[in-house]
């Protein structure tokens, strides 16, 4: 029941999808569409599971007054206020609070949208923006042309960095039209379109073969690591 039934479910579902690829007709195609729709619904439950887990973990930390419990309380406050504002579609307009279960969730009057705009949006975009500082620092500390391979990597990066700004055309504007292909922007475009494409394609082959073999192992029950070690 704990490992055999899940393995059978995986086998049946996975096989059905493969069969449908070769025989895209009823009943296979209909069943595949149904299963894909079910997948979407179950994926939605997965988000609830994720939120539930987060609330449980931080709830425990607050209840037992563990180190950093104050921050867990902040996390829970953000979580529950967003949840209540969103599920009940609470709106704030002209100084009055109200709720509208039938309303469009994207309505800017909903407090849910206000929290998205003023907490979620700056949070997520700043976290990614932070990386610009670290990448600059890493460029200074670690990016060295120690050998041929490293020099190639560095040279390509410099061509791209210059070629993707308006400095690139200015620096090589003196080249005659017959040598236009040697301008920095042309070089940057060429590097992207040919050698980079070739390298990425080789990586893509490797990734594709890896995913195909792993999927086969999972469907055939050879790899059951996703079911966990313990019963």
């Amino acid at each position: 029941m704990k490992r055999t039934v899940p393995s059978i479910i995986t086998f049946l579902v996975g096989t059905l999808l493969i069969v449908t690829f070769f025989i895209p007709h009823k009943p296979f195609s209909k069943l595949t569409d149904d299963f894909n729709t079910f997948f979407d619904i179950i994926a939605a439950f997965a988000f609830i599971l994720g939120g539930g887990n987060l609330a449980r973990m931080h709830g425990k930390r607050v209840a037992s007054r563990q180190a950093g419990w104050f921050y867990s309380a902040v996390c829970l406050a953000g979580f529950f206020s967003m949840l209540i504002f969103g599920l009940l579609k609470i709106r704030y307009h002209d100084g009055a609070l109200g709720w509208d279960l039938k309303g469009d969730l994207n309505n800017a009057q909903f407090l849910f949208q206000q929290m998205w705009e003023y907490i979620f949006r700056p949070g997520t975009s700043t976290i990614y923006a932070l990386l610009a500082f670290f990448i600059a620092s890493a460029s200074y500390r670690a990016f060295r042309a120690r050998n041929t391979e490293a020099a190639l990597l560095l040279g390509t990066a410099l061509i791209i960095l210059l070629g993707r700004t308006f400095v690139g055309p200015i620096l090589t504007a003196w080249l005659p039209p017959s040598l236009e292909f040697l301008t920095i922007p042309s070089l940057a475009n060429w590097v992207m379109a040919w050698p980079t494409q070739a390298g990425n394609r080789a990586i893509m082959f490797g990734v594709a073969l890896g995913i195909v073999s792993l999927s086969l192992k999972v469907i055939l029950g050879i790899d059951r690591s996703h079911l966990g070690e313990k019963d």
Binding site: L54, Y71, G78, M82, G86, L87, F112, W116, I119, G123
Partner: peptide, 23 residues
């Protein structure tokens, strides 16, 4: 403070959106 608030808000955001758009 900002990190924990962001984590809590984003987890609830995903729950709410999938509830109203999928479930």
């Amino acid at each position: 403070f900002a990190e924990h608030l962001f984590v809590g808000v984003s987890a609830a955001y995903w729950m709410v959106v999938t509830f109203w758009t999928a479930l």
